[in-house]
Deep mutational scan, measured.
Amino acid sequence: TEYKLVVVGAGGVGKSALTIQLIQNHFVDEYDPTIEDSYRKQVVIDGETCLLDILDTAGQEEYSAMRDQYMRTGEGFLCVFAINNTKSFEDIHQYREQIKRVKDSDDVPMVLVGNKCDLAARTVESRQAQDLARSYGIPYIETSAKTRQGVEDAFYTLVREIRQH
């Protein structure tokens, strides 16, 4: 089974770092803004072998026109913010609204991801993020692309959301 996953969120929150940590098991430290990259990885989730087709997208506003296209083809979405960047957390709402509009559905598989949880300088409390996820009816997972904490959990949870859909 193949799953088309799309990673969305503001610029600099760590979308590529999360994806590369999942696929290649290493942490990319330097920031190089993405336009669009796709990665494929075969994994076993709950005993089922599946192929993850992951689209890593641009957070930069100037590429926002490309969003409709990949939102149409994606089956599930990782909505990523950084726990030390309140603005990126506030941006999640717009991504969710755009996904709902493009998919013409209120019920699209999504996982809210709070990345950079290895950093002490948190400005978005776990509780705020949990409340937001609960209001959307989606899971919330904290990750660190640096330490790998929660990385597999985030992507695998999204696959489970798609399966249950």
Rank of each mutant, 00 (worst) to 15 (best):
T1N: 01
T1P: 06
E2W: 02
L5R: 00
V6T: 08
V8S: 01
G9H: 03
A10Y: 07
A10Q: 01
G12E: 15
V13H: 14
G14R: 00
K15S: 04
K15M: 00
A17R: 04
A17D: 03
T19L: 07
T19E: 10
Q21M: 09
Q24I: 13
H26K: 00
H26N: 03
D29R: 09
E30Y: 00
Y31F: 04
Y31K: 00
D37F: 00
S38P: 00
Y39P: 00
R40N: 02
R40W: 03
V43C: 03
V43G: 06
V43Y: 05
I45W: 02
D46V: 10
D53T: 04
D56S: 00
A58K: 14
A58D: 11
E61R: 14
A65C: 11
A65Y: 07
R67L: 11
Q69V: 03
M71C: 02
R72W: 04
G74Q: 12
G74L: 11
E75Y: 05
E75H: 05
F77H: 08
F77P: 03
L78F: 03
L78K: 01
C79L: 06
V80G: 02
F81N: 02
F81M: 09
A82M: 06
N84G: 12
N84W: 07
N84K: 02
N85E: 07
N85C: 08
T86H: 12
S88A: 06
F89L: 03
H93N: 12
Q94G: 06
R96F: 07
E97A: 07
E97L: 03
Q98S: 09
I99E: 03
K100E: 02
K100C: 02
K100F: 08
V102F: 04
V102S: 06
V102E: 03
K103S: 04
S105C: 07
D107M: 06
D107E: 04
V108L: 06
P109D: 03
D118W: 09
A120K: 10
A121P: 13
R122M: 13
R122C: 10
S126G: 12
A129E: 12
Q130F: 11
D131M: 13
L132H: 09
L132T: 12
R134M: 13
Y136L: 12
Y136W: 15
I138V: 12
I138Y: 02
Y140H: 08
K146Q: 14
T147W: 14
Q149E: 13
G150W: 13
V151C: 10
E152R: 12
A154T: 12
Y156Q: 14
T157A: 14
L158H: 12
R160M: 12
R160D: 12
E161H: 13
I162H: 04
R163F: 08
R163G: 08
Q164T: 12
